[in-house]
Design a protein around this nucleic acid. Structure first.
Lengths: 340, 340
DNA sequence: CCGATTTGATGAATCGTTTCTTCAAGGAGA
DNA sequence: TCTCCTTGAAGAAACGATTCATCAAATCGG
């Protein structure tokens, strides 16, 4: 006595299986009497019938399943949020998510994509954390694909990435509004897209406010606590010290706090600080709590799925290839007016 | 010209489909001539044939798929590691993972389990972060299930949780070996299993070393940075100050560092500190880097899958119901001999 | 009252496998 | 030479749905 099959429903309602199928799927243009329909629905309800997705998929060639392949799902909280965003959106739409992580190994990536195609997923979300501009396995040409947190080398498929530039603009804008004119930037030395985007946003926003660029105010180090410490130290030891520092990320901001503390500078009284990433283990925990810019990974995950769904359903409305997801500013207690 | 089907392989090899199936699946006791076998294998290779898992599942009632349902996959790095462990193990065994997260909502949990059963998963890993002793949806009785990071209320299914007690013992043991005799414990005030387990390990280890329990040395607060700060402050202001503090987690250890710094105590010269959790944003980043105990989430994820596989394959060797996964000590720079 | 059309419903084919039963051919034993 | 196994392979029936073509009954216009 396993699950009831469509045959059982048909028998109980005293009709043929095809009629049951037609009713249960609300097939358009199908003609079936209201009374028969009612009988079928009742029978299905009584039996607790749910259609077998395997059999259905075999026939319809749709699996209501998508693959999420990521190069890393564990080491950052960001990855988890992307997955969760995609999963929540998929669940809403009645899709289930195959998760496979590749650790960034190229061979494994190809294997993974092949395995997903074998399983006849309806689409693939291809997420690569950190780096962007990745080459994608050629097989992905055979299936609807959206890139998440990454740009395709050719503009061949939809993608979504954070609007780093806009986020940096928001951060610097917040400092400008507080009255700061001399704003340092403790940046990441590596040439990653996030770094160049945030730097561009920093420069543009200052320029728009009529503040000339001062190369001294940009200190590049590793994007770590100690890197932040070093960068902030350099900035704070400048002859004309900045009254605010925008940090590439929260970890650097953490180092910046230490550098400030060592110099007897109180935040935000003597120095204002803004971070980036809004990491929950850092930003709210520092004292004072850090004003920072949040990365919209959850939203990007949702966007990716919705865009993918559009692709799958061949929705002509959705035609945009790339999308920059806004990074909202999170106000806490590390920004104040400049001293004096 | 979609994927080749088994029929195509059969045609190309000039044999019947059943023979192809038998050859490709290495069916035991099947009799097929070596030359025919070779021809079939060649044909399959030439065509790049891979069997359609949907059709296969329909027939065999096995999907080579398992469901991972968790109440939260994003907010802690731990969750990601469990998933990754399970996923890696599953991938190795040729299984794919359906991921669904429930946010801990009971209704959604039931829904999720039902959806997974509908999809005919071969088994389910049921992971609940944080809290343990959860009730499980009754439908899970119908399918092989393993609980991850949680205990079932009744002992009805296999589960794996961290060996908190052992981890605490390792931490305290490390301090004892360094020569400390007066060791404080900054613990979590909430009555969660992790807290009681670690407290028990603390007490047992001290007792085994012949050190009488001193209630003054246990300070309970919230398991946050500020909680750790408060707890450590109380301990450090004791008449007879402890020379070492074992902290419930790394965040409390972070607060402990601050309390020590405010009192002019250098770590590890004047005070030794051990944490728990080994969070990568904290433990290695503090200065000095924090000696702590790692939570074996990745390993637990792997264990859960392997145990599940045993259940699915009805492996009589695996009969243990619960497993305590060891928590390894991670030595860094926050432990030294006691002062004087 | 009769052919034409609509309505309501059904059987059968199909999706791509696995697996059970059957069958022809060849070899061994008597 | 005849029977009886054994071997190698094929045919066909599931698995559980969807969907197409078909068909009987009912309705309609004239």
């Amino acid at each position: 006595m396993g699950k009831p099959r469509i045959k059982d429903v048909a028998a109980r309602a005293g009709v043929g299986v095809s009629t049951v199928s037609v009713v249960l799927n609300n097939v358009e243009g199908a003609r079936v009497g209201p009374e028969t329909r009612e009988r079928i629905l009742a029978a299905a309800r009584d039996l607790g019938y749910t259609s077998n997705p395997i059999a259905r998929s075999l026939r319809t060639r749709r699996t209501q399943t998508i693959g999420f392949v990521g190069d890393d799902i564990a080491t950052t909280p960001f990855a988890g949020r992307m997955i969760q965003g995609a999963q929540d959106a998929a669940w809403q739409a009645g899709y289930l998510l195959f998760l496979v992580n590749t650790g960034g190994e190229h061979a494994l990536e190809r294997h993974a994509v092949r395995a997903l195609l074998d399983r006849r997923v309806d689409g693939v979300i291809y997420a690569t954390m950190y780096h962007r501009h990745v080459e994608i396995p050629e097989m992905l040409g055979d299936v609807s694909t959206v890139m998440l947190d990454a740009c395709p080398t050719d503009g061949s498929m939809p993608y979504v990435v954070p609007d780093e530039r806009g986020g940096a603009a928001a951060a610097v804008g917040e400092l400008l509004r507080a009255g700061h004119r001399r704003i340092g930037f403790a940046t990441e030395a590596l040439d990653v897209p996030a770094a160049s985007g945030r730097l561009a946003g920093y420069h543009e926003t200052l320029a728009a406010a009529g503040i000339p660029a001062d190369p001294e105010l940009v200190a590049a180090e590793h994007g770590t606590t100690t890197g932040g410490y070093r960068a902030a130290s350099r900035l704070l030891d400048l002859d004309e010290r900045p009254t605010a520092i925008f940090c590439y990320n929260d970890r650097m901001a953490m180092g910046c706090y230490r550098a400030a503390a060592e110099r007897g500078l109180r935040i935000p009284h003597d120095l204002s600080v803004v971070g980036y990433d809004d990491q929950d283990l850092i930003a709210p925990e520092l004292s004072p709590a850090l004003t920072t810019v949040a990365l919209p990974h959850y939203e990007m995950g949702m966007w990716a799925f919705h865009r993918l769904l559009g692709l799958i359903q061949d929705d002509p409305e959705q035609r945009e290839q790339g999308y920059l997801m806004p990074c909202p500013l999170v106000r806490r207690d590390s920004v104040g007016p400049p001293p004096r």
